[in-house]
């Protein structure tokens, strides 16, 4: 009889490539078509502006279905999954995310033909000296 699995600690998260494989259901992911617009150095990880653009005409036949944003070193790998539809004009989404520390961020796009494309970017999150100590 198999032993009970040990519960995972909060920080014991799956690595980035495993997370991407789960999103694509094991399908191959090609690098390209996706642009991840992200400052390489951010002053505070609590609200990091990020923009993802995917090359796509966004027509009924050829559009981006989903774009997922994942991180490498937060306690949890998911940031957001965006659902897009034909008629969007552009496959372009901007948001603000939390990054616990310097790390890689990945954007993975699922196209209407079932293919996956991705881009990665590395971000340095500077550590401030003067942070609030509640007393």
């Amino acid at each position: 009889m198999p032993s009970e699995p040990t519960p995972r600690l909060a920080y014991d998260r799956p690595p980035l490539d495993e997370v991407i494989r789960a999103f694509t259901n094991g399908m191959a992911v090609r690098t390209g078509k996706v642009t991840l617009d992200l400052s390489p150095l951010v002053e505070n990880g609590n609200a990091v502006p990020v923009k993802v653009t995917v090359e796509s005409p966004m027509t009924e036949a050829d559009h981006v279905r989903r774009i997922a944003l994942f991180n490498e070193r937060n306690p949890q790998p998911d940031i957001a999954v965006f659902h897009l539809f034909p008629g969007a004009g552009r496959a372009e989404v901007a948001t603000r995310m939390r990054l616990a520390t310097s790390q890689k961020v990945a954007a993975v796009a699922e196209m209407a033909d079932g293919g996956f494309w991705m881009a990665e970017a590395s971000v340095v999150v500077t550590l401030a000296a003067c942070i609030e100590d509640l007393i």
């Binding site: 550590l127 401030a128 000296a129 003067c130």
Partner: peptide
């Protein structure tokens, strides 16, 4: 001012 303290 303008110099760095930690990363800021």
């Amino acid at each position: 001012w303008g110099r760095r303290l930690g990363g800021s």
